[in-house]
Design a binder for these strands. Sequence first.
DNA 1: ATGCCCTTGCCTCAAGGA
Length: 258
Amino acid sequence: MTMRLATWNVNSIRARIELVVAWAERVAPDVLLLQETKVATDQFPADSLVSLGYHVTHWGTGAWNGVAVLTREAPREVRYGTGFARAPLATEEPRALAVRLEAGWFMSVYVPNGRALDDPHYVYKLTWLAELRAHLADLVADGVVVGGDFNVAPSDHDVWDPSALEGATHVSLPERRALDALLGLGLTDVYRALHPDDPGFTWWDYRQGAFRRGMGMRIDLVLASEDIARNVVAVDVDIEARRAPRPSDHAPLVVDLA
DNA sequence: ATGCCCTTGCCTCAAGGA
């Protein structure tokens, strides 16, 4: 029994649907976590993905944010937001969505960007991560995978040039501590566990030819509780998806479990 | 310090992204 899991910030599912469908056909993940769908829940273009055999669970409110979990297995339960509510809260941005499968909880997260260290959105980012940690603690015992766009590079090894990012978000100590606090629940950063030395970048700015010049960051992560992490046999960034015409600025991260 | 690129919305510019 093997399982393939992937996470991908698609930067609009409507702009990317043909690419996502072709990619899902080729890579055939059993679970696909999506972020930045940028569409309302009932406007998600699900038909072609349902035809491929996926159950589509999505939460979106319009032009911003939006998270989805695509699964071959029918979800047994669905939870919304950092508080794992049984229904979406109108006051909360659609940034976290979890479904329970036989193997445990599978959660897609789109952590707030933060914008700048002196911006209120940065405080929101840290608060959001703390909320996630507080509620995630209960789920670790059931077995949990949290994957998505964390908008935090865990260490200087995860960015192309730390000196170019001094004073920026994504690399600040409070953000890294907030991420460490998630790992402290007993979660493993599965890419780094299997690739101690590779950069593993998953995002490259659209501007300035950043992809061609190797100016990337590793900000898309899969964190897994110990019972699941110990079964991980491969973790890879699918850089080909970033090379495609009209790509997302993020590449998918693919995890194989034995 | 800003634009460099890309997406959305009511849209020919602004906001947001990271």
